[in-house]
Design a protein around this nucleic acid. Structure first.
Length: 194
DNA sequence: ATTAGGATCCTCT
DNA sequence: GAGGATCCTAATG
């Protein structure tokens, strides 16, 4: 496993028409909310139609259609029959790319998230894609919805953030691509970077 | 710190 | 019918 360091430079909203591995590090440090519940994005993963770990790899289908739609929308899917997980669709339309939101540092609506998750430990509220889905009440109806409209709110970073990258988690194909990105040193990561 | 098993359901083979 | 872009708990080194 290997890692690289990047520094996110812009204090503006990232360009969703970028390919996923370019967009992903720029999302670290942004704040994301659903109905005013959420926090700072500290971990994401890029997925692209050209590699077999992506849901879009085998082409368009009923489930992954929003990945092939316009960038800047949500791709919401059911994981292991249990969790709802959220991606930011990116790259040009028809590309079939997205960035999975894997962990947040809770900022607003912490009481609501504790209630939804049934725990009090702030560190575990949003540290994992399924946990993010439960804490922010990500729902299937949000699939295809614009990320710049209600109930979503995406706020650019207010300072520079050191970003670390490594191998993606929980996949069995294309395991060597270093397309997982995290806020260096954050205690809200779903797993540490080694 | 690491591992194993169960829950659960929709999609695609 | 198989198998997940996961999480939780429990058991063990």
């Amino acid at each position: 496993m290997w890692e690289i360091f990047i520094l996110s430079l812009n204090f503006s909203l990232p360009d969703f028409s970028l390919p996923p591995q370019k967009l992903a590090p720029l999302l670290i440090g942004c704040e994301f909310y659903i109905r005013d519940v959420g926090g700072i994005i500290v971990e994401v993963e890029a997925y692209d139609q050209s590699e077999p770990a992506a849901h879009s790899f085998t082409g368009i289908s009923a489930r992954n259609a929003s990945m092939f739609g316009p960038p800047g929308r949500a791709y919401v899917y059911r994981s292991y029959g249990i969790h709802w997980c959220l991606n930011f669709v990116c790259a040009p339309e028809h590309w079939g790319a997205g960035v999975l939101i894997r962990a947040l540092e809770p900022v607003r609506g912490i009481d609501v998230m504790c209630e939804r998750r049934g725990i009090m430990d702030e560190r575990l509220l949003c540290s994992g894609p399924g946990r993010v889905g439960q804490a922010l009440a990500v729902a299937h109806e949000m699939n295809g919805h614009s990320l710049t409209q209600e109930p979503f709110q995406l706020v650019p970073p207010t300072r520079k953030h050191p970003v670390i990258s490594g191998q993606r988690i929980g996949i069995s194909k294309a395991v060597d691509l270093p397309w997982r990105f995290g806020l260096l040193g954050s205690r809200f990561l779903s797993k540490p970077f080694r």
